[in-house]
Simulated scan of single mutants.
Amino acid sequence: MKMLSLAVSAALALTGTAAFPEAISGFNIGIMGGENAQDRMSSNECYRAAIEAAVGVLVKVFTPADYDGVIQGLLGGTLDMAWLGASGYAKIHLTDETAVDVALTKQNSDGSTGYYAIGFARSDSGITRIEEAEGKVFAFAEPNSTSGYLVPGAELQEALGPLDQFFSEVKFSGGHEQSLIGVSNGDFDAGVAWADGLGNWEDGYNSGAFRKAADSGLIDMNNLTEIWRSKLIPEGPMVLRKALPQEVKDKVTRLTADLWEKDPKCAYGVAAGEAKDFVPVTHETYLGVIAARKLQEAAN
């Protein structure tokens, strides 16, 4: 990310100032759901502290119970930045195109910038592919999740027909972590969560919900088996509230872009596992997901 750093440095130099105007008195980060609040706080404490040192104001982390809490915080201006899923970004854009700026996305260890919705079941369930989950209880994460609902819901319905007829029951667990624990504990027969699909299944792949839950000791990957995989989904973006001073947005973007080089342990927590970098991304990357979200909302 050195080229990005140089570009941002040059932009800052053109402003003729090294300090930020006193336009903000604090900076609030929203962390999407998918794991318990304390783990989200712990994983991002180093990141919060680094941003606080960079912008020179108090930085707080907020962990709403669901994805919509972060979405509404960004729309309402009470949150200044967040890492979103593509569907969450789509909802914000469809609600208010002027709310946020897209900045960065996660780059995987193989250079790709995408991930998968992974269908899974218990290894002892006898379910080895999604078709064998017919008549079973299936768990999605929550309605605003890209890989936990929007994409797998659409792809599975296309393949299997109406899901409430194929499965005996379709539930929302509340998040990826809840789906993983629920299937592991036998509360659901199968479900979906997200992963980069790289590395070893036994590790929870390189990054994603499986890796986070495995690292935390919440699940044993040997007790689970993959039964389905979506098409590649674009990694969600890091967004910043558009109304922030440009200097603040540049500083936070540059810090994040350099995080894997300067503090890989901290970057691991932000990325939910192993990755290569945080790289620039544009709105155009999410046009397909925005179109899918618009169709979904029109149908409801």
Rank of each mutant, 00 (worst) to 15 (best):
F166W: 06
D277Q: 13
M238V: 15
G33L: 00
L74D: 02
G119L: 07
V100G: 03
L198K: 12
G161S: 04
G77H: 08
V8M: 12
I92K: 07
T63V: 15
V192N: 01
A209S: 15
I233E: 08
V281Y: 06
P280A: 05
K106I: 14
A292H: 08
K2Y: 10
L218S: 13
L163P: 04
P280N: 02
Q107H: 00
W194T: 10
V57P: 08
R122E: 13
I290T: 04
D187M: 06
G288W: 01
G191H: 06
K249C: 00
G174T: 12
L104T: 07
S87C: 10
T285G: 01
Y47H: 08
D124H: 09
A90Y: 04
D68F: 09
F140T: 04
F20A: 09
I219S: 07
S173F: 08
F188R: 00
S173K: 09
G34Q: 02
D187R: 11
D215K: 10
A11L: 15
K251F: 00
L232F: 00
Q178S: 14
K294G: 07
S109Q: 13
D263R: 11
G148C: 08
L180T: 12
G85T: 15
K212M: 08
E22G: 13
G269T: 12
G16P: 04
I118A: 06
K294W: 00
D124I: 04
L259M: 14
I127K: 01
I181R: 15
D164N: 15
L259D: 04
D68N: 15
A99K: 05
C266T: 12
G199F: 03
W194Q: 13
G26F: 00
W83D: 08
V100A: 05
A298I: 02
K106D: 05
I71A: 03
N206P: 00
G197E: 05
S123A: 15
G208H: 01
L240N: 09
R254C: 11
T98I: 00
V279G: 10
S43R: 15
T256A: 07
T225M: 06
P280D: 06
L75D: 05
V192H: 00
S125N: 12
W201G: 00
V61R: 14
K249P: 02
E169D: 15
L104M: 07
Q107E: 14
S9P: 04
K231C: 03
K262Q: 15
T225H: 06
L255A: 05
D203T: 12
W83K: 13
A299L: 12
L180C: 10
R211G: 03
S145A: 14
A133I: 03
H283W: 01
L287T: 14
Y205T: 02
I71G: 03
D164Q: 13
T285L: 10
K212C: 05
A209N: 10
D110H: 12
D110G: 11
A257V: 05
D220Q: 14
S179Y: 07
L104G: 02
V100S: 06
A154N: 13
T15C: 07
